[in-house]
Simulated scan of single mutants.
Amino acid sequence: MTRTMRQKSILLDGQSVHLTRATVLPRRPKTLHTHDYVELFWVQNGIIRHHSEDGVNTLSEGTLVVVPKGKAHALQGKGDHAMVVMLCLATTLTNNIAKRHTPCARVVHALCIREFARDTRQMAALNQAAMRLERSSCDALAAEAFLLPLLVDLLDEPDFTDAPPWLSKAYSDAQDPVIFREGAAGFVALTGKAHPHVSRTMKQHSGQTPVQYINDLRMNYAARALTGSSDALPEIATDIGLQNMSHFHKLFRAKFGVTPAQFRADKQRNVVQPE
Rank of each mutant, 00 (worst) to 15 (best):
A185D: 13
E235L: 00
K203Q: 15
K203D: 12
M202L: 15
D231L: 02
G228K: 07
T161H: 15
E182F: 00
D231S: 04
A232C: 01
A223M: 04
S230G: 15
P196C: 10
L217A: 02
D173W: 00
A237T: 14
M219L: 06
Y171H: 13
M202F: 01
G186W: 08
E182P: 01
S168D: 13
Y213C: 01
L190Q: 02
I214N: 01
F187G: 00
S168E: 15
S229Q: 10
D176E: 15
H205V: 02
A163W: 13
Y171L: 14
G207R: 09
R181G: 00
P164S: 09
K193S: 13
R224L: 12
R224C: 02
I214T: 07
T191V: 04
G186M: 14
D176T: 13
A189V: 03
G186F: 07
H205C: 00
N215F: 04
A184I: 10
D173Q: 10
T209Y: 07
R181E: 10
A222C: 07
I179H: 00
G183T: 15
Q208T: 05
T227P: 03
T191F: 00
T209Q: 07
A194Q: 13
N220S: 08
M219C: 10
V188M: 04
T227N: 06
T201L: 05
L226N: 04
A223K: 03
A189Q: 11
G186A: 10
P177C: 09
P196D: 11
T238V: 09
V188E: 04
K169P: 00
G183R: 11
T191H: 04
F180R: 06
Y171G: 03
S206N: 03
L190G: 00
T227L: 09
T161F: 02
Q212F: 08
A222D: 07
H197R: 11
L226G: 05
G207M: 12
D162G: 07
D173Y: 03
K169L: 10
S229G: 02
G183W: 15
A184D: 14
V188R: 05
S206I: 12
Y221A: 06
P234R: 01
Q212D: 06
T201N: 03
T209C: 07
V178F: 05
G186R: 07
A184Q: 10
H195T: 13
P165K: 12
H195Y: 02
A170V: 11
A184E: 14
T191S: 09
V178C: 09
Q212P: 00
M219D: 12
R200N: 08
N220V: 12
A189K: 15
Y213K: 02
G183I: 15
V188C: 12
F180L: 04
T161G: 05
R200G: 02
R218Y: 02
A174E: 14
R200A: 11
W166R: 14
V178D: 14
T227E: 14
A222P: 14
N215I: 08
S199D: 08
T209G: 02
I214V: 15
D231H: 09
R224V: 12
M219S: 09
H205L: 05
A170M: 11
